[in-house]
């Protein structure tokens, strides 16, 4: 099955940077109501617009858990605008119905999700952590308008705003 790339299974078995940590500027909780996948996610922004920490607690299928792990791995320590660019490339690949194989330069381990694009029902599993991430950034005061244009992901959000 091209859906379960070994890299995805590896991330799902041992999610990187998992667990909720402080300090953080915003915490969100997103659920996928059709299947019950859930993620709590926190962001901590550092000097110069760098993502200093991204911590999460994900409960769900291997695709959504692995996606959270890859999100953390590929985004931690990078300037936030760069991570938003990664998101746009990832979303383009995921919604391409198998047409866009993804650019490893842009996506890193995210290219492992290329097979997901052929399974429309699973695309929202892969996007759930990223949707939560965008929401958390917005709650933390980051302008995400450019990244969040286009198809709106279909998850629902419960958000908690906390000062760290």
């Amino acid at each position: 099955m091209d859906l379960y790339a070994e890299l995805i299974l590896e991330h799902a078995r041992r999610p990187r940077h998992a667990g909720l940590r402080a300090p953080f500027e915003a915490e969100v909780h997103h659920v996928n109501p059709t299947c019950g996948d859930e993620i709590s996610l926190r962001v901590h922004l550092g000097e110069g617009g760098v993502l200093s920490d991204l911590s999460y607690d994900a409960l769900g299928c291997s695709i959504s858990v692995a996606s959270a792990s890859v999100l953390a791995e590929e985004s931690l320590g990078r300037p936030v605008p760069d991570t938003l660019e990664t998101y746009q490339h990832l979303r383009a690949m995921l919604t391409s119905r198998g047409q866009d194989p993804g650019d490893p330069e842009q996506l890193g381990d995210g290219v492992a999700f290329a097979g997901v694009s052929r399974y429309p029902a699973r695309v929202k599993c892969a996007l759930l952590p990223w949707t939560a991430y965008l929401d958390a950034l917005a709650r933390a005061g980051v302008d995400i308008a450019a990244a969040s244009s286009g198809a709106a992901p279909t998850t629902t959000a419960r958000t908690t705003l906390e000062e760290s």
Partner: peptide, 26 residues
Amino acid sequence: GVHPHDVGQVLDDAGVAVRTGHHCAW
């Protein structure tokens, strides 16, 4: 240790259609 979505996907790959999730009974 395996989420039902993943179980369902493996079955689907073999042509077996089952329901996965909370089945409207959360």
